[in-house]
Design a protein around this nucleic acid. Structure first.
Lengths: 357, 357
DNA sequence: TTTATAAATGCAATCGATTGCACATAATTT
DNA sequence: AAATTATGTGCAATCGATTGCATTTATAAA
């Protein structure tokens, strides 16, 4: 990789002192109190003074020091978000959804990535507590099962909203997908398409969402009187590579599966597809594939991948609204509640055995 | 979409007052000064006291109030990032790159999306100035050509680093791709593959990067004595839909192109591919396609799309390092300079006419 | 033992904005 | 004209942490 460095030319430092309300006050021969009131549009200032202050503030390029303001007011108008990775479909959409709603209310978002590491998650949470954020929105990392850092958030009087991957034992606001239902519907669809030996790639079972998806899978089999075959259930296959490995293993069984449910993610499903394709196994006729999350790429692969949409953008908006609704009635106690969004099965080519061939 | 609401049970509010250094001081019968010094690991405290303070702080679950600290110290250990969209490959990678480097130094990132809107960009910048961030990293929105808000950043003594899409006239630190060179190489490759009528889908020409890509295209044609054909150059085709529209138009020409360079993005290239496929035109034999950005999906389409990788993760790390390097020597003036990263052509099936068929 | 030096701590001001309380002036009511 | 009520300002404390300067205490040197 080449790096080219152009030195253009130099300019002098500007250690410029920022204008404060005192500067404005001095210039107008009034006190800082009045300036503050004017800037906050208080009714206790003369209209004239208000205009004058606003005008002068603009002239002096005044910018309110939020640090000072927040310190005094004890709030920060900031929401912290901790997610495993910002570039996963569900997370970037949730963030975008939150942002849309909070933006209009002049809230800031501080976004942290845990990279699935528990240690980093804890560090991020602590940083956010230090920052005095008003609310923390989190989807927990796969790693770790000690949630005292989240309890700590509550103990600090900071609102906590969990989504998607939640620590079930904590009594907080939760916004979830109904993973069980989605999984059940997905598998039912596959059975209807004639698949009989459906393998499951499961995610870390310490996370509730993956347990639920497994339950949905098991229930669907049961409902249709299909046996649960242990060798068709593979643990922790939740990246593309692990999905590929699992697939190689499954397809080399004496009795290989005729379908694979990559319950962990579409990335895993992609691994399945790639291995199947490279082995010359036809999808969906010889092997059905079901993913999870409706990543954008699932409609681009050939064949396109059947998956489950989580309405993640909507979830984000729900989270933000929940926060604002909650902060309005400050007196009343927080009622821990769970909002469950029903995901939608997106049927594409990778499971459409009947209609395709 | 179904929403199910479970009311679990209620718990009481905890308006809990947070512990401050004064609480610790009181408990230990010393002053806040000493506590502060202990917590900051100053050499002017007794080792005993230091240990005692640290122990008590832990016991009382003390968390430093960063707002107060920052207010006093006049810094924020926060970097603001403004990008058009966080879920575009280059941006999420740059952010991840910045984060990796800043994380270890206990910096926070505040991430804003402009959604390509100039107004929102200005608002975000103002919010970041208010926040007293130490540095703002920006890739400007397509909309707008007035950059006084960025000048304002500098005037407030905040470091400004531009990347990818920059306002050229501002003398700031810049981290760029050599778009011209990348474009030149890409087109040269296409010419070598035998394409002769290469169309260009260009981006908003108020952005430097798109102008450069066009220049590279023109230069490549010139070098190989190919004519520049006006009707093969389409303006502002930079979403999937616009790319598709442009392609329909191009392919219905009396003399249609035999290749299309979607210089704006891979999304646009995807639109090209979809239209071509639906029209039964074979890629790459009848139509070559070159995209830009190396979005993950480009290797998943069939055929896979030739594109240009921008080393975005590396760019992010470069940006962060640049900032730290710059803040170390506070005395010396900021030298505006440009770091240009050379992108890499990723040759895939969509242009491989020679080797494929 | 006295003096010089170092180490540890306290005091008080500071960062910038906000806000309860007091006060003065103007407007309104009896 | 006197009494009452708005209205607009100022004063000063406050939010929590930091830090220069002063002071005390402990230690080393004379």
């Amino acid at each position: 990789m080449h790096i080219i460095l152009f030195i253009t030319f130099s300019t002098t430092m500007k250690p410029k002192k920022r204008t404060t309300i005192y500067d404005i006050a001095e210039k107008l021969n009034i006190t800082a109190s009045s300036v503050s009131r004017a800037l906050n549009n208080s009714s206790h200032v003369n209209e004239e003074t208000k205009k004058l202050v606003l005008k002068t503030a603009a002239e002096l390029n005044y910018k309110r020091n939020i640090l000072a303001s927040n310190l005094r007011k004890g709030e920060s108008k900031t929401i912290g978000i901790v997610v495993p990775r910002i570039n996963q479909n569900i997370f970037s959409n949730v963030i975008a959804g939150i942002e849309e709603t909070t933006y209009s209310k002049d809230y800031n978002l501080i976004i942290c990535q845990s990279n699935e590491s528990h240690e980093k998650e804890v560090k991020s949470i602590n940083a956010l507590i230090n920052q005095h954020v008003d609310c923390i929105v989190i989807s927990v990392a796969a790693e770790g099962n000690d949630y005292s850092h989240l309890q700590n958030v509550i103990d600090h009087g900071i609102k906590l909203i969990q989504f998607d991957r939640v620590a079930d034992e904590l009594e907080t606001l939760k916004v979830l997908n109904d993973n069980h239902q989605a999984s059940l519907e997905g598998i039912t669809h596959m059975i209807e398409q004639g698949y009989k030996r459906i393998a499951l790639l499961e995610g870390p079972q310490n996370l509730d969402i993956f347990r639920q998806r497994k339950q949905g899978y098991l229930e669907a089999l049961k409902l249709h009187n299909l046996p649960v075959i242990d060798e068709l259930i593979i643990e922790n296959a939740w990246t593309k590579e692990l999905g590929a490995d699992a697939t190689r293993k499954l397809l080399s069984l004496a009795e290989p599966p005729d379908a694979i449910f990559a319950s962990t993610s579409d990335f895993s499903a992609l691994g399945v597809l790639e291995v199947a394709t490279s082995m010359g196994i036809k999808v969906p006729s010889e092997l059905g594939i079901l993913g999870y999350s409706n990543e954008p790429f699932t409609e681009l692969t050939s064949p396109s991948i059947t998956t489950i949409d989580q309405f993640s953008h909507y979830m984000g908006k729900t989270i933000a609204n929940l926060y604002f609704q909650e902060s309005e009635n400050k007196e009343s106690p927080v009622v821990p509640r769970t909002i469950s969004v029903k995901p939608k099965l997106i049927i594409r080519a990778s499971t459409s055995r009947r209609s395709y061939q």
